[in-house]
Amino acid sequence: MFNTYEGLKQWRKDTIRSVADDHFQLNAFHDQLMYQTVTIAMDKIEREQGNPPAPFAFFVMGSAGRFEQSVWSDQDHGIVFDGNENVQHYFLNLGEEVSRGLAVVGYEWCEGQVMASNPMWCRSTVSFQAQNSDWLDEASWQSLRNFSILFDSRVLYGKEELLERVKHEAFSRLEKHPSLYARLVDNFEFIKKGVGVFGQLLPDQRQGMKGDIHLKETAYFPYVNALRILALRSGTTAAPTISRFEALKDTYPFIVEYEKDFRHLLDFRLRFRQGAENYEKVHLLPIDHLSKEEKLELKYLIKRGKQLFAKSKSIVRKELKL
């Protein structure tokens, strides 16, 4: 059953609802699906092109990297390999096969091409280190977003130390140029407002979303960005937000009270969105489907995330005298 992408697709279809009401079981299941997909792709490429020409790691980013996927998810992944760039073609072929396999299994293609089939996300350790430096030097909204995407990554298959090497080089650069933290913090502040001045939930006004609140952009991102800021400041390589809470609570004790809010938010999303019919709908919650108590619950969680982000930003700026 697990020897083909179609078999994995059927396994996903048969199993996903049984784990959809538990955040950790759901994300562990996603990990299994993606790992098995990479294994099938790896077997195919080895038959066609031989063994890998260098040690490598396949890693996931975005919600997969942070262990925060919902029932539906798109693809965000890359490959880092040891050695020089003249073996890149092998790993690009692998990345293309993995991307194709994941699409069959049920993970939509990434519109932004953040996939291992894209040379930007399939590089040697040295090349990724140089790319990080370029992104930080440029410090545009897009370059810092790319840096943040890569930072929210974890290895799913292969040599973890290769990705660790890339992250530690970035930490060294940030320590030498602390003003870069200010640019990153400013970049993270672009968060969609979810609660209005009169305490009302603010629905999205974009085409096809009117009447819905975008949970990821309004509720999740403040928590995610706050813990990302603190992780960057402390040199913490863990990508999942829950893992960052655990790793950082001794250094920043104030975050302990917010961890339960974030876990509550994870449960809140699954409670209402596990029945979403596709990836486009999985983050959209119709406000008129919520009871008065549920609206109060969501407004509280949004406000707490905003508060956590403000505190984290203030602490990092104070530490660095920015």
Rank of each mutant, 00 (worst) to 15 (best):
R271N: 15
E319A: 12
Y279S: 12
D137G: 06
R273K: 14
P178A: 06
V155F: 10
N118L: 04
F262V: 15
Y181A: 02
L284A: 09
W72H: 15
E164H: 00
C110R: 03
S63Y: 09
Q32P: 03
L174C: 10
P203N: 10
G78T: 06
E217H: 14
D186H: 09
D186Q: 09
S148F: 00
T125F: 00
K13F: 09
V316A: 07
Q131S: 14
D31W: 02
V105R: 03
E46K: 12
G275W: 08
T125M: 08
L8G: 04
A54Y: 00
A41N: 10
G196P: 08
A310Y: 14
K159P: 03
T37N: 12
R206D: 12
K13I: 06
F59C: 06
R12Q: 05
S314Y: 13
F91Q: 03
I255K: 01
G112I: 03
R273I: 12
L162H: 03
E97S: 12
L102K: 11
N278L: 12
N84L: 05
G112H: 01
F198V: 13
L227T: 07
K299P: 05
E294K: 04
F254K: 09
S148I: 00
V80L: 04
E138W: 09
L150R: 11
L202P: 00
D82H: 07
W109L: 14
S148A: 02
V166I: 06
Y220I: 00
A103I: 12
G196D: 15
G62K: 01
E160L: 02
R154E: 11
N84I: 04
E108D: 14
V166M: 01
L322K: 07
G101T: 14
E6H: 12
V166R: 00
S234E: 06
V195R: 05
F262G: 14
E297L: 03
Y107G: 08
Y5C: 02
H30F: 08
M61N: 07
K216Y: 08
H283K: 07
V104K: 03
W141V: 14
R183E: 13
R173F: 03
N51Q: 15
P203I: 06
S140T: 13
K193A: 10
W141M: 10
E246N: 15
P52L: 09
P222N: 04
Q69F: 07
G158A: 03
K249P: 05
G235D: 00
F56Y: 04
Y258M: 14
E97V: 13
C110K: 05
G83W: 04
Y5E: 02
Y90N: 05
S63P: 06
K311Q: 15
N86C: 11
H283N: 14
W72S: 13
H289G: 10
K318D: 05
D137Q: 12
S140L: 07
